[in-house]
């Protein structure tokens, strides 16, 4: 039964039994810890320049080597984790709230509300997102807050479509008719009866969305219009790595690995949540 396969104890058990999802979750937890307590993982200052020790390969003093200004790469990667997480969560938070709002209104009211909102979604989807972000950032200060806002504002359409589809089917369910017969108004039906039942697919979309947002932020920072140096972010450490890739491989490899592992972690967890919430979708 779909209902009983909801978010109860069975859900947690199924999720943890999925080894890949559990591994993804562990990676995410690890990076949470890194962001919360960077001092635990690196004793160096991420922005302390050390002209004598530039581009040193990994050693005991600098486990991941140093960059072209002699800064400790481990310290920079560790402090960059916070940027990535922040961008990932805030951007996806914005996208999810917007997507929920549009999807619920569109699916529940149908008719011209639906037509207008969905055409707007189609319009937004026509823009190549990355170039849209590039041009918007070109007009704004390149700051982490602007990046989060722009990624969020260009990433809500998928959630909106998902929520709309769920709402369309949920509003025909008998328990919605029952709520109407009890005298519940639209607001109550949307908030108490429709919204809570859309949360499982939303959680999946949000988890996968965090991975996408982290990638986008890295790409923007890599191009120099994201997080501005000297604040470390995985993307802008890579930029420094690109200039020295012929003789300092460690400068590109480690931030790249951090991005890879984190994004993979979110994707695995997201797919695990999807399979655990609805076993029928398994293997798709």
């Amino acid at each position: 039964m779909k209902e009983s396969a909801g978010m109860g104890r069975g859900f947690a058990r199924r999720l943890l039994r999925n080894r890949l999802a559990a591994a993804g979750g562990a990676v995410i937890l690890f990076f949470f810890l890194v962001s919360a307590l960077p001092g635990l993982f690196s004793s160096h200052e991420p922005n302390r320049i050390d002209i004598v020790n530039i581009l040193r390969p990994p050693s005991a003093a600098h486990p991941l080597g140093t960059d072209d200004l002699g800064r400790d790469v481990l310290a920079r990667v560790v402090h960059g984790a916070r940027v990535s997480l922040k961008v990932g969560f805030v951007a996806v938070g914005i996208a999810t709230v917007l997507g929920l709002l549009v999807g619920l209104l569109s699916g529940f009211y149908g008719g011209w509300v639906d037509a207008v909102l969905m055409r707007f979604v189609d319009m937004m989807l026509c823009f190549p997102t990355f170039f849209l972000i590039l041009s918007v950032i070109a007009f704004l200060e390149p700051s982490i807050w602007n990046i989060m806002a722009v990624i969020g504002l260009t990433g809500w359409m998928g959630v909106a479509r998902l929520v709309r589809a769920e709402t369309l089917s949920l509003k025909e369910r008998d328990f919605v008719a029952a709520a109407r017969a009890q005298g519940a108004g639209d607001a109550r039906i949307i908030l108490r009866h429709v919204l809570p039942n859309t949360l499982a697919p939303i959680l999946v979309a949000a988890t996968l969305g965090v991975a996408g947002a982290i990638l986008t932020e890295s790409a923007l920072s890599f191009l120099g219009i994201g997080v501005q140096p000297p604040t470390p972010s995985w993307g802008n450490i890579l930029t420094a790595g690109k200039d020295n890739i012929e003789y300092a491989w460690w400068l590109s490899l480690f931030p790249g690995l951090a991005i890879l592992v984190t994004v993979l972690g979110y994707n695995l967890l997201g797919e695990g949540i999807r399979d655990a919430a609805d076993p029928r979708l398994k293997g798709r």
């Binding site: 039964m1 779909k2 209902e3 009983s4 909801g6 369910r173 008998d174 328990f175 008719a177 029952a178 709520a179 109407r180 017969a181 009890q182 005298g183 108490r192 009866h193 809570p196 039942n197």
Partner: peptide, 18 residues
């Protein structure tokens, strides 16, 4: 509507699982 209520056929779809 307080005066008229309904009992549905499908006991699964008629109760909000959440």
């Amino acid at each position: 509507r307080r005066q008229m209520q309904i009992v549905f056929q499908d006991p699964y779809s008629s109760l909000n699982p959440r």
